[in-house]
Design a protein around this nucleic acid. Structure first.
Lengths: 247, 247
DNA sequence: CCTATTTGTCTATTGTTCTAGACAACCGCA
DNA sequence: TGCGGTTGTCTAGAACAATAGACAAATAGG
C-alpha cells in the first residue's frame, strides 16, 4: 500500500483511487501497456476490488483506460499535450507535431453589450457591443479546451461566421485584415470542472480545469480579443519559456 | 438555486458547496463582510442546512470564514495573490504590495545524486551530486506554496544553510556570487493535493495544486536551479505578460 | 479441451453522507 | 426584559459509498 487514502474526507475512495492511478501508475506506462489486475490494485491502495472497479470505470469514461474482459485493463491514452504560451500563442500552431488533427468547433455565438471585464480588456466603453464566440478545441478528436472569446463588434462584426468556416481564430482574423497578432497578457489559475465542462470536455466530476484569461493585440497594440479558456488539466500543460532540458 | 450540484459524483455535497462558496460568493465580498445565513445558503445550493454547515466548517478550518454564534458568518480572508511569471520571477519581490510579510521556511535539505530529470535540467551528468532544498513559502503568515529545489552541489554546496539564514533564494544565491539570475523555463500544470500538501499548506482534501517546474539560469546562461513548486490554487494565480486591463 | 487468469455481475451487509425536524445558546436591538 | 434572527447540537431515517463473497463470462496458453 504505497498511497494512504483519506477516508470520510468528502472525496469518495473510488475517486481518490482514480486520481492515484492517474498520477502514480500512468506516468510509468506507455499507451497500450497493461495495468496490474484489479485485485492487485485493490491491495496496493488498500481498498476493496469493487472500489477499484468504480475508479477504473471513471477513467474508462474519460477515455484514459480500456478494460477488456478476460484480458486485462490497458492504457489507452496519450500524454499531456505541451502548450507553449508566449507572445505568439496560437492553439493550432502551438501543439506542433504533438498531434495530427487540430480543430475548433463553434458552440454558440452572439452579439451582446460588453460587461465590465470584457470592456476593460478590450479598451471599450462598458456596454459597447461585442461579439461572443463559444468554442471547443480538439486535438486528435479529443476535446482539450473550451473558450469564450469576445471581439469588438464594430470592427469584427460577423467573425463567428468566419470562425465557423475556418475553425481557426487566426484565419478568421486574417479575413478581417489582421495578418498578425500577439499575446499581451495571460492569466492562469485552476478550478474544479463545472457541469458544462464535464459535458463538453468529457470529464468526470472533480476533474481539474486550467483556466486562462488572455488578451491578444494587433500590430498597433490595439486589443482585439479577450478570451477565457478552460483546459482539461489532465490533457494539457503550459510551457512558458523554452522546454530544452524539461522532462 | 444558482448552482446545480452533482450528486453521486464521488465528491461529497458539502465539499461542492464549500467550493461554490469560495468561487461564487467570496469574490463579491471584502474581508469582514457577512455571508448570507445558513438557511439562505442551503436554499441557494439546494441542499440541507446541515450540509451547508459542513461546508462552512471546512472553510473555517482553512481560515477563510469565521462563524460566530448568534451573529453570523463572516469573511476572514484575502483574495488570490497575483504572482507574475517572467524572466525575473522571484517569490519575495513578485508579490509586490499585495502582502506585508513574505517568508520562506526550510523543511528539509540534503545532498543526493541527481535523478534524470534534475540532471537534464541542470545540465549535469546523471548521478552527479546535487543539493536538495524543501521549502514552504508564506505570505502574511499563510502558507501559499511549497517547493523542492535542486542546485549543483559542486558550485552551491551548503546553500541550504544560507537559505535557512535568509529565507530567500535570491539572497542565498547572492552569497555564492550570483548577483542576478533569470527564469529560463516555467511549466505549469494542475493536480489534486496530496497528503503532504494538505499538511504543509493547510488545505482540505480535494484542493487543487498549481504545479510549476522551473529552471533559473545565471547571467552566463548556466542553469543554477531546478525547482518543482506546488501552489495552493485558491490562494494564487499566475500572471504572464502585464495585467493592465485584467479584472 | 482444459486450466489459470482476468474482467463482469449479482447479493448482502456495514459505514458514511445527506436530509428532516426540533430545540438550545447566543447576539443585537427595541 | 423580550423578541427576531443567527449559529450550535441532538436525534432519526433515507440515500449513497464501501466491503465481502460468490460465481459467470471471456481470454490466453499449454
Amino acid at each position: 500500500m504505497t498511497v494512504p487514502l483519506q477516508r470520510r474526507s468528502g472525496i469518495a475512495l473510488w475517486r481518490q483511487v482514480a486520481d492515484g492511478i492517474r498520477q502514480t501508475l500512468l506516468p510509468h506506462l506507455t499507451p497500450g501497456d497493461q495495468l496490474p489486475p484489479e485485485t492487485a490494485l485493490a491491495g496496493r491502495f488498500g481498498v476493496n476490488r469493487h472500489t477499484v472497479r468504480a475508479a477504473v470505470a471513471a477513467l474508462e469514461k474519460e477515455g484514459i483506460l480500456r478494460a477488456e474482459q478476460g484480458r486485462g485493463t490497458f492504457l489507452a491514452s496519450r500524454r499531456r499535450l505541451r502548450y507553449p504560451i508566449g507572445r505568439r500563442t496560437r492553439f493550432s500552431e502551438g501543439l506542433g507535431d504533438q498531434t495530427l488533427i487540430r480543430r475548433g468547433r463553434l458552440l454558440d455565438a452572439g452579439v451582446e453589450p460588453a460587461g465590465p471585464d470584457v470592456a476593460r480588456a478590450l479598451c471599450l466603453e462598458a456596454g459597447a457591443p461585442v461579439e461572443r464566440l463559444e468554442t471547443v478545441s480538439s486535438a486528435d478528436d479529443v476535446a482539450v479546451s473550451r473558450a469564450i472569446s469576445w471581439f469588438d463588434a464594430k470592427r469584427f462584426g460577423g467573425i463567428a461566421a468566419r470562425y465557423g468556416d475556418t475553425g481557426s481564430i487566426t484565419r478568421a482574423l486574417a479575413a478581417f485584415g489582421v495578418p498578425d497578432y500577439t499575446r499581451k497578457t495571460t492569466m492562469i489559475t485552476a478550478v474544479h470542472a463545472e457541469a458544462d465542462d464535464l459535458q463538453h470536455l468529457s470529464l468526470s466530476p472533480g476533474a481539474i480545469i486550467l483556466l486562462t484569461r488572455s488578451i491578444n493585440i494587433d500590430p498597433d497594440a490595439i486589443p482585439i480579443q479577450y478570451a477565457e479558456t478552460r483546459f482539461a488539466a489532465d490533457r494539457m500543460e503550459f510551457l512558458i519559456g523554452d522546454d530544452a532540458g524539461m522532462p
